[in-house]
Design a protein around this nucleic acid. Structure first.
Lengths: 339, 339
DNA sequence: ATGAAAGCGCTAACAG
DNA sequence: CTGTTAGCGCTTTCAT
């Protein structure tokens, strides 16, 4: 494990650092360095386990071959999966990934963005809180390569890979309607996130297009950090009253899980009395009692495309054409909406 | 977003780079730089949004304030959660985290270790494949700070934070026995991982201590990458034959999920005909039908302690005292083992 | 085909 | 109290 440097191998071989550096960076041929010399260098390097100091290399090159990933929470299975696909794809292109969680806090996110820039990441993938418009704009103006995932800023022209939230929820709501449900509730997170707004719109659109009224009593938006406490009341409010709801659309997997938990505690039959449906799903939604019908998000495609767009952007930071991708969700029909 | 450098602020303020650097690193007082000068520097830096280039800083300092995390798979909820806690704790100490997944492949893990060293991480947290003994030893000999989590090398003296695998599984098996089950099967992954070996030992110990025979027919170890295909046969083999099993211990959450899936497909009543119990759990095991009894691993403590030990090691890389932590699991009793 | 030398942005002796 | 200077390890022009 004795560390060996470029200088060392140049000395040992009686060559210049230049020659060694060139060869090690595959620029031997183009600089007409003799095959033999090249081989000597390569062999020696391999034999002695030479590994360039990436900080030095990065400093010199002005790039780090690293991409930064900022998500709300890496332990949310949804982001963990995206991170996984991002990592795989990034590796294909020779990039490493550094990640950080913003915990849905705009100030932290902002700090993270700059902290990553300091670390000289070559590009950024951000699932933003959507509350850092100014900083996103700065990135854009500075022509710094980045792509937004999952959440985007509708009014900023940039690269992004998101999901058709409106379509997905509209689909879900229609599915419930088709299954004969008449009074459909909606439980979401209180937020200005476009994704959540769109999901609500999708729900409302499905209702109105099918000639149903939108009733405010049937819509609950819970506080992100206290949704578990608020869930019981929300459910009671919707279900246990005259003219209660006979189905509920949940806008995230953890809301669906929490909601089902409460429904069970209240001994409310699912889907007998109330059908439920979830936007996105946890690992085991097919095993849950009852198996939960859900719109599955294409996490693999989201991760892959984000990296592809980003790397492309990094390589030729000339192209001003934004890549705007809206992916479709897939409705996995299970038992929680009746048969 | 115009980039500003140390040099710039020195020039603007008519000072030397030294003075500026010192002040910016909180060493102004100790170098007796006038309060006033300090204030000028600090103000100017803040006003112009000065952000040091971490690659340059790192190169100069010989450290990166980054810790590397290597896990088998970041999209496994278990590792995602650990990563989350590691990230939080690391941030407390001013460290960033770069992660990579080894995909349970020793060669990749090895590559990752060295790749991270090249990137000058200050320390490493590794959930190892347990097949890189030589490299772990090299790290140790080189006195490079690292701590093993989840998996360790029983014969190498190092820092590690693991879980009492034997105790946990013994507990699980005993629980089944206490619930009147007589023929308990065991489904695991085929592997030399100590964790898995210990889990099997725990199972066997519980049986023999309670006067039960260990029957090889009741033990199935599936191939990691094909466990889903093999599960059906394994289950059939165990359950659907004369003198079949009346309970199954699964050694991971995904095996339990997969096993339950197959049991359902085969219309085998759980826990009526077969009780099941899982080592570790997925997010929604309490909602599953039936809710699955599981040994919960203390992911928070594992992440936190790993970072604490590591940072301590980084700071004073003198102490030769190894930190060996074995954490306890917690049995969450639910319906899948009968009442 | 190869080498000398400058420079990436920052830190840190050391001298004044 | 402040500035000069020499690196950290690597890349890269520009001569030779």
């Amino acid at each position: 494990m004795k560390k060996i440097f470029l200088k060392d191998i140049a000395q040992e071989l009686n060559l210049s650092k230049t020659a060694v550096s060139l060869v090690l960076n595959n620029r031997g041929d183009e600089n007409k360095i003799s095959k033999e010399t090249q081989k000597r260098i390569l062999d020696f390097a391999k034999k002695n386990n030479y590994r360039p100091n990436q900080m030095a290399r990065g400093l010199s090159l002005g790039k780090s071959e690293t991409i930064g990933l900022i998500v709300p929470n890496i332990s949310d299975i949804f982001y963990a999966k995206i991170a996984h696909f991002i990592e795989l794809k990034a590796k294909e292109f020779g990039y490493n990934v550094v990640f950080s969680s913003s915990n849905e806090d705009a100030a932290i996110e902002k700090e993270l963005i700059y902290s990553m820039l300091n670390r000289q990441v070559d590009g950024l993938i951000i699932a933003s809180t959507q509350e850092n418009r100014a900083d996103i704009l700065k990135l854009k103006e500075a022509n710094f390569p980045f792509v937004l995932i999952d959440r985007y800023y509708p009014d900023i022209k940039t690269n992004y890979v998101i999901v058709d939230n409106l379509g997905g929820t509209k689909n879900m709501t229609s599915h419930l309607l088709k299954n004969g449900r008449k009074k459909i509730g909606f439980i979401s997170i209180k937020s200005e996130l476009d994704a959540l707004l769109q999901r609500r719109l999708g729900y409302e659109l499905a209702l109105s297009e099918n000639g149903f009224e939108i009733e405010n009593d049937h819509i609950k938006e819970l506080d992100l950090f206290h949704y578990q406490n608020k869930m019981k009341v929300a459910i009671k409010d919707m279900v246990q009253k005259e003219n209660g709801v006979d189905a509920i659309v949940f806008t995230t997997h953890y809301l669906a899980a929490s909601g089902l938990r409460e429904l069970k505690l209240l001994n409310i039959e699912v889907p007998g009395k109330v059908a439920i449906i979830s936007f996105d799903e946890l690992g085991a939604f097919d095993l849950v009692d009852p198996p939960i019908t859900a719109s599955k998000q294409p996490v693999d495609a989201m991760g892959n495309e984000a990296v592809e767009i980003l790397v492309n952007e990094i390589d030729k930071n000339n192209s001003k054409i934004e890549n705007e991708r809206v992916l479709q969700t897939e409705l996995l029909i299970r038992k929680s909406c009746g048969v």
